[in-house]
Design a protein around this nucleic acid. Structure first.
Lengths: 129, 129
DNA sequence: GCTTGACCTTCCAGTGACGGGAAGGCCTAT
DNA sequence: ATAGGCCTTCCCGTCACTGGAAGGTCAAGC
């Protein structure tokens, strides 16, 4: 399989696949002409990465998870630990965004949004001085 | 005021303040020795920026908002428009994170987290092949 | 055999919004 | 004179890619 086929089948851009090789997440073989020659196992790893990235895991998390995935003697506790930390980061992020969202929604609500210059949004932003 | 005082009073790191000058958000005067000499108006702009950034506005949004803030002939509709677009971006982000969070929470819930290798998290991630 | 076009390769630069750290100048107090 | 705490600029690193240039390869059609 060339990179184009793998890109199609994994849903990842070719650029991203090359990047993953560069940082050592995959190590596809090479044909005589220098083209990358992907095996099914490479595709499997890429599918794993695509799924993990879609869940928001960092690249370093992905590296750890792939190692655990390929270690038959892993402890599920190690996997769970990585996932729980990530979950906590996501919860923090959501809470932060919700805070912003609520404030913003109030301000937008209060703004007439017409041709006049009076604006509670700007008033709020400039209130610190 | 030197940059250290302004950093303390605005809550922004000195590095950030220098960066804001570099990208043209503020234009503090200079003393004869080359030190930045901040006026109250500069501090006011920085407080505005700190507040806008805390609400998640991008730097480019901040530039626009500052321009509107300093334009007595602005239309509040323009401000509201910027804020509404930002609000929509935040809502998208929250929805995306909530999707991740729900899936992750299910997986974490299902994982025993003990010394055994069986792990629904890894099973899910590897399920694509 | 030649051209065309779709592949593939590497390398370099840019993204957003800073942060770290080096090398060096300035200012105040002792 | 020296110490230390400011300040300056400059350059590199972050994260996970993305875009684009310059050039090699391959299969199809004429």
């Amino acid at each position: 399989m060339n990179i184009g086929d793998v890109a199609t089948r994994s849903g990842l851009p070719a650029k991203t696949i090359r990047y993953y090789e560069e940082i050592g997440l995959i190590k596809p073989a090479r044909d005589a002409n220098g083209y990358r020659a992907f095996a099914e196992a490479d595709l499997h790893r890429l599918a794993f990465l695509a799924r993990a990235r879609a869940l928001g895991f960092t690249i370093e998390d992905c590296r750890t998870l792939l190692d655990l995935y390929n270690d038959p003697d892993r402890a599920s506790a190690d996997v769970k630990h990585v996932a729980e930390e990530h979950l906590a980061r996501i919860d923090d992020k959501i809470a932060q965004l919700r805070g912003m969202r609520d404030t913003l929604a109030d301000l937008v609500q209060a703004c007439h949004g017409d041709a006049r210059p009076d604006c509670p949004i700007l008033k709020d932003l400039g209130a610190g001085a």
